[in-house]
């Protein structure tokens, strides 16, 4: 992928030249679709949050900040928000660690490395909703093969009812999100490691550096940019991971695995409280916008630096 910002276009752009008009025309269909089915729905969500709504989400009378007050004064909302933050940070950290270990392992030459690389990708290549359904069966406390294997091998003689109790459900659910995200991290890190010049390692050898020193002073600085980009992308995906939570636990038991994005959906389509759902959607929207713009900012700054 070459420079996204093409530097051949140096002259100052004009608002209404022939070329500009053609550009607007070419972008029109995409913009139209985005305005109709993304911008307008977002505006509508803001409206819903300010109105009372009926059971199918139609706007009734104007209610001002009433729904906001209702949401912000419930404990569950704040617990869910904190849990979402913990969920995101923890999952991304573990993904990065596993991703780094796998990338380092794949960076060693041995027969079958290509096959190993192909196999490691499967969780990413697979469909997330389907994977989540498979994991639900893996975690089954009665007939599931995870607990059977843990018991049969003596690793854990009394394994938990994974999705049945708050703490184990949170661990089991976040693990599935982590599991989906590991291959992406591993591949990005591997791509970065393979782009580092061998000369650097050779001069490291001459200077008598050990493996740990070379990792810390050559490998890590060499892929620093990639670690940042991958972490930010992964954070946004993790924050948005509706499928895993909804399919595995629907946020339960209780609200022990609820994150903002599943709370929005359940308030809307299960409890038919569309105003409250809209309030939480607005909060989510604001969080995502801030992080996305920050990500775009970092991305473009890096593109200039590199």
């Amino acid at each position: 992928m070459a420079a996204h910002v093409s530097y051949t276009l140096k002259r100052k752009p004009h608002l209404w030249t022939r070329e500009a008009r053609l550009a607007y025309l070419l972008m029109l269909p995409a913009v139209l679709l985005l305005v109709l089915l993304m911008v307008y729905p977002i505006v509508y969500v803001f409206m819903m949050s300010l109105y009372r709504t009926d059971r199918i989400g139609r706007l009734q009378e104007f209610a001002g900040m009433a729904a906001y007050l209702e949401v912000f004064t419930t404990r569950v909302f704040w617990e869910t928000t904190v849990r979402t933050a913990v969920w995101t940070v923890l999952a991304v950290l573990v993904k990065a660690v596993f991703g780094m270990v796998i990338a380092l392992a794949l960076n060693v030459e041995y027969v079958g490395r290509r096959v190993a690389r192909m196999l490691f990708i499967i969780p990413w290549a697979s469909s997330v909703p389907i994977s989540a359904m498979l994991w639900k069966w893996v975690y089954d406390h009665e007939f599931g093969l995870l607990n059977h294997t843990l018991k049969a091998t003596g690793l854990w003689n009394n394994p938990p009812v994974w999705l049945g109790a708050p703490i184990s459900a949170f661990i089991a659910t976040i693990w599935v999100d982590i599991w989906v995200g590991i291959p992406f991290m591993a591949l990005i890190f591997l791509a970065g490691m393979q782009a580092i010049s061998r000369d650097l390692y050779e001069s490291g050898d001459i200077d008598g550096a050990n493996a740990r020193q070379k990792f810390l002073h050559i490998t890590i600085p060499g892929i620093r940019h990639l670690i940042l980009i991958a972490t930010m992308l992964s954070s946004l995906w993790t924050f948005n991971d509706f499928n895993t939570v909804f399919i595995l636990t629907k946020g339960g038991p209780g609200t022990s695995t609820e994150i903002l994005i599943t709370a929005v959906y359940k308030h809307g389509f299960e409890w038919l409280r569309f105003s409250r759902a809209a309030v939480m959607a607005v909060v989510t929207f604001i969080i995502l916008t801030v992080v996305s713009l920050f990500y775009a900012h970092v991305f473009f700054r890096q593109e200039r630096d590199v």
Binding site: L34, L37, M38, Y40, P41, I42, Y44, V45, M48, I56, G57, R58, L236, F239, N240, F242, I261, V264, Y265, G268, F269, F274, A277, A278, A281, T284, F285, L288, T289, V291, S292, L293, Y295, A296, F299, F300
Partner: peptide, 19 residues
């Protein structure tokens, strides 16, 4: 373009349903 990629469909799905 870069920022929109991160938007969650869940944000709009409640109003998209009405539309």
């Amino acid at each position: 373009l870069l920022a929109i990629q991160m938007f969650s469909p869940v944000i709009v799905v409640i109003s998209l349903f009405r539309i």
